[in-house]
């Protein structure tokens, strides 16, 4: 059964039709045309699909499209302010926190959610906060450093 859903994505009012069994990830990628969130597993195990829903970090593959009704969705596409990169984005590039980059959108959203709640996390807190996001390329070293550097910059500025 198809249903019309009204939601807000990255600050814009968006309406879409979706089937009852479609996930928010399906909707974002296939109906709204935002392919920044990735599907690495579809079962909530890799975090590549991480988005922020009403301020809370979620796996978009575990949320139904219809659940977005009346809510606010933030995806990686909304992270920068126009051409101005979010500090996390700049630090990820600077620190080479990405190799292939498939996990990057998910990590950026997870790191954003972390820093909002905890502006001065320890290394251990960063590692546990990002433990739901898999990266197979980097060994996480440079990701953790990029998040540390961002946190320091955000606190300093």
């Amino acid at each position: 059964m198809t249903q019309l859903v009204n939601t807000n994505i990255n600050g814009d009012a968006v309406g879409f039709n979706c089937e009852t069994d479609e996930t928010l990830l399906d909707v974002l990628r296939n109906r709204v045309g935002l392919t920044g969130a990735k599907e690495g597993c579809g079962t909530g195990d890799c975090g590549a699909c991480s988005v922020i829903l009403d301020g809370t970090l979620v796996c978009a593959c575990l949320v139904l499209g219809m659940e977005a009704e009346g809510r606010k969705v933030e995806t990686v596409e909304g992270l920068s302010d126009g051409a101005e990169l979010h500090p996390l984005q700049s630090k990820f590039i600077e620190h080479a926190a990405l190799q292939c980059g498939i996990c990057t959108p998910g990590f950026l959203m997870a790191a954003k959610a972390l820093l909002k709640n905890n502006p001065d996390p320890t290394e251990e807190e960063i590692r546990y906060a990002l433990a739901g996001n898999l990266c197979r390329c980097t060994g996480y070293d440079k990701i953790v450093r990029a998040v540390q550097a961002t946190a320091a910059e955000l606190r300093g500025g």
Binding site: R29, L34, T35, G36, A37, K38, E39, T75, V76, E77, L79, S80, L85, L88, Q89, F92, I93, L98, G101, I102, T104, P105, L108
Partner: peptide, 13 residues
């Protein structure tokens, strides 16, 4: 880099 941190990079899917 920029494409990959903004979601612009196009992967297989």
């Amino acid at each position: 880099g920029i494409d990959k941190v903004t979601g612009r990079a196009r992967f297989g899917a």
